[in-house]
């Protein structure tokens, strides 16, 4: 029974990290064990969710909880039968298109606040990040009213516009940090070599910052895919995304644990896998260039 690991809270792990060297090997292996316990304990709820998704409902409702069971795909089938498909497509479309839009808008803007800076760079950056500080909830009322007035309720493009605005400020900051890592001499050399600004951006700068763009895109994808507030308030049957489906599912399926877990697993899976693959990009992007 692996369940008890969840109770292993890291009470005082770090001080051992700093203990004198003479404790040496024993201390090191203790730390390793602790790291494993913490890691598995923290991940356990997700593991349990995935396991439950493969159970029959009868196996999901047991005391004590069942670790060994005959896996089944029934729950996933049920989730697809309940029509998660279109929601997945909506999520995918809104995520991909808004992320592309963010990059298209943020890349030139970040260039304008880094390599060839406009005046008042600080003010511009301040403005962008300050829009993130204002709570979304304060804007939802007029957004709802306006979207309703122009007949864009339950339209995927409404979400795309809002997700683009939601991720744009963070993306500008991230892209700026990547642009700042481009040596100024590269642009100077390119201009000396006869390249126009547009040409040197395309031929010289873009290849250098493309890993940064990927990092930025990953973070935009995570936030867009996982967004719920706008989606639940502004969409219904036609344009709703996966999180909205999950909410509907919990209402309609009540407390069918296994089915819910299957649905939640499907909802989370794409972004989790993307994040696993691109872990290092995640760090690069989130640290705003504080990490090279």
């Amino acid at each position: 029974m692996a369940a008890p690991t969840t109770t292993e809270r890291p009470a005082t792990p770090s001080t051992q990290d700093l203990a004198p060297a003479r404790k040496g090997r024993v201390g090191a292996s203790l730390l390793t064990v602790l790291a494993w316990i913490v890691g598995i304990g923290f991940f356990f709820p997700i593991l349990w969710m995935v396991l439950t998704a493969f159970k029959q409902e009868a196996d999901a409702y047991t005391t004590p909880p069942k670790l060994f069971f005959t896996p089944t795909l029934d729950q996933f089938r049920a989730v697809f039968d309940a029509g998660i498909g279109p929601y997945l497509l909506n999520s995918l479309f809104a995520t991909v298109v808004s992320t592309i839009l963010v990059l298209v808008l943020a890349t030139p803007a970040a260039f304008a606040v880094s390599l060839r800076p406009v005046k008042k760079v600080q003010d511009v950056l301040f403005f962008f990040i300050s829009t993130k500080m204002l709570p979304v909830v304060a804007a939802i009322v007029p957004i709802y009213v306006v979207v309703n007035d122009i007949g864009m309720l339950d339209n995927i493009w409404t979400l795309i516009v809002l997700y683009t605005a939601m991720n744009l400020p963070i993306a500008v900051w991230m892209m700026r940090s990547f642009f700042q890592e481009v040596p100024k001499e590269l642009l100077e050399a390119a201009s000396m070599d006869g390249a126009s600004t547009a040409r040197s951006l395309r031929e010289v700068v873009l290849p250098v910052i493309s890993p940064g763009m990927a990092a930025t895109a990953l973070i935009c994808v995570i936030f867009a895919w996982n967004e719920f507030f706008f989606a639940v308030n502004l969409t219904a049957a036609r344009a709703a995304t996966v999180p909205v489906f999950l909410v509907g599912f919990i209402t309609s399926e009540g407390l069918y644990f296994a089915k819910l877990c299957a649905a939640a697993t499907l909802a989370a899976l794409p972004v989790v896998i993307a994040g696993w693959i691109a872990q290092n990009k995640l760090v690069q992007g989130l640290s705003f260039g504080a990490v090279k």
């Binding site: 040596p183 001499e185 590269l186 100077e188 050399a189 201009s191 000396m192 006869g194 031929e203 290849p207």
Partner: peptide
């Protein structure tokens, strides 16, 4: 502008295009 001056420059850190 630089590109119309018909000059070439070698930079201290070379400024080679990394890609």
């Amino acid at each position: 502008p630089s590109r119309d001056r018909d000059i070439a420059m070698v930079f201290q850190n070379y400024a080679l295009y990394p890609n």
